[in-house]
Measured scan of single mutants.
Amino acid sequence: MDALKSAGRALIRSPSLAKQSWGGGGRHRKLPENWTDTRETLLEGMLFSLKYLGMTLVEQPKGEELSAAAIKRIVATAKASGKKLQKVTLKVSPRGIILTDNLTNQLIENVSIYRISYCTADKMHDKVFAYIAQSQHNQSLECHAFLCTKRKMAQAVTLTVAQAFKVAFEFWQVSKEEKEKRDKASQEGGDVLGARQDCTPPLKSLVATGNLLDLEETAKAPLSTVSANTTNMDEVPRPQALSGSSVVWELDDGLDEAFSRLAQSRTNPQVLDTGLTAQDMHYAQCLSPVDWDKPDSSGTEQDDLFSF
């Protein structure tokens, strides 16, 4: 819950932080000083300027060897085509990944977070970031790969997607708890209302004896509580940590079903599988986004697919 609360507080303090972009060759504004600060901008989305290598189908939802083989196929196909790589912007948030063309600003792909089953910074092609997700059109699994400016960037994108998945799962947990509370309150309110109706004398007997209905007592009954809980029953509950912020979080049926399955089948359902080692994760978390744009010590960066 700490990640969720800190993310909400950060967004309320400075929503404009989320509009910064990394990996864009110096076009961005001043960047936060450390990885923790940038992680807090996830709610509205972190932007990464990358190059799209392509996509291939895979048979399993996750796995280092599986993704490595898929990336190898994608890279080989991209090299064989001889075409310049498409420059894209990857927007990562707890909602998922939005992929747009840098030149036309046209939407290429919009992947809900619950469809993503794996992401990684490839070991062999260490400047490549990739994720595996279920197609929104059918049940097939797709591996999408992107060329980053350097290994640090690939690791940073991988960690960002993993963190977005974690925050999304926490949102789901909060929403589920809130819905259970509202359902319980609604049920209790309905029981109270039913009890009051059972003990209320029939209207005919009131008229016969000349008694008047006590409207004041009726007004004191917990009807307002019942209506408050039943009027918006169809509205999706939102985490309290975000009250007053500009973010509107809505959970669709697909996300609810997917996270429910994860909660039942996995020990740590909030953790998205990645190909990063503990050492890689520690190294990337210690980086400032400013470091992502620094040239690798191995030599001059080449803006070309064939540089790796």
Rank of each mutant, 00 (worst) to 15 (best):
D2N: 03
A3R: 12
L4S: 02
L4N: 11
S6G: 15
A7E: 14
G8I: 15
R9C: 14
R9V: 07
R9H: 14
A10D: 15
R13T: 13
S14F: 00
S16E: 07
S16L: 13
S21H: 07
G24I: 10
G24P: 10
G26Y: 10
R29K: 13
K30N: 14
L31R: 12
P32H: 15
P32K: 14
E33K: 08
T36G: 14
R39F: 11
R39V: 05
L43Y: 14
E44S: 10
E44R: 14
G45I: 08
G45C: 03
G45Y: 10
M46F: 03
L47Y: 02
L47A: 13
F48P: 01
F48E: 00
L50N: 04
L50K: 01
L53D: 00
M55L: 10
T56N: 01
V58A: 03
V58L: 13
E59L: 09
Q60Y: 14
Q60D: 01
K62E: 02
E64I: 12
L66N: 10
A68F: 03
A70T: 02
A70P: 01
A70C: 08
I71H: 01
K72G: 15
K72D: 06
K72R: 05
I74M: 01
A76Y: 08
K79E: 06
A80P: 00
S81W: 04
K84D: 01
L85H: 01
Q86R: 03
Q86K: 15
Q86T: 14
K87A: 09
V88S: 08
L90G: 01
L90M: 10
K91G: 05
P94A: 12
I98Y: 05
T100W: 05
D101M: 15
L107D: 02
I113R: 01
I113L: 02
I113Q: 07
Y114W: 05
R115V: 01
I116S: 00
C119S: 11
T120F: 03
D122M: 00
K123M: 13
H125S: 00
H125P: 00
F129H: 14
A130D: 01
Y131T: 00
Q134D: 14
H137S: 15
N138D: 15
S140K: 14
L141Q: 06
H144A: 07
L147R: 00
C148L: 01
T149W: 01
K150S: 13
K150I: 02
R151A: 15
R151Y: 06
K152E: 14
A154M: 00
Q155S: 05
T160V: 11
V161G: 00
A162D: 03
Q163N: 15
K166W: 12
E170T: 08
F171Q: 06
W172M: 02
S175Y: 04
K176S: 09
E177H: 05
E177P: 15
K179A: 14
K181D: 12
K184I: 15
K184C: 08
E188V: 02
G190R: 06
D191R: 09
V192S: 05
G194D: 06
A195S: 03
D198F: 11
C199N: 05
T200H: 09
P202W: 12
P202L: 08
K204P: 11
S205I: 07
L206G: 10
G210D: 15
L215E: 12
L215I: 12
E216L: 04
V226G: 08
V226N: 10
T230Q: 09
M233D: 08
M233Q: 08
M233A: 05
M233H: 09
V236K: 06
P239K: 04
A241Y: 09
A241L: 06
L242A: 13
S243A: 15
V248S: 10
W249F: 12
E250M: 03
E250D: 05
D252P: 10
G254F: 07
E257R: 04
S265C: 05
R266I: 03
N268I: 01
V271D: 10
L272E: 03
L272S: 02
G275C: 06
G275T: 04
L276E: 12
A278P: 02
Q279P: 08
M281I: 01
H282N: 07
Y283V: 12
A284W: 01
A284I: 03
Q285G: 07
L287Y: 03
P289W: 07
P289D: 05
P289S: 03
V290Q: 07
W292G: 06
D293N: 13
K294H: 07
S298M: 13
D303G: 07
L305P: 08
L305S: 08
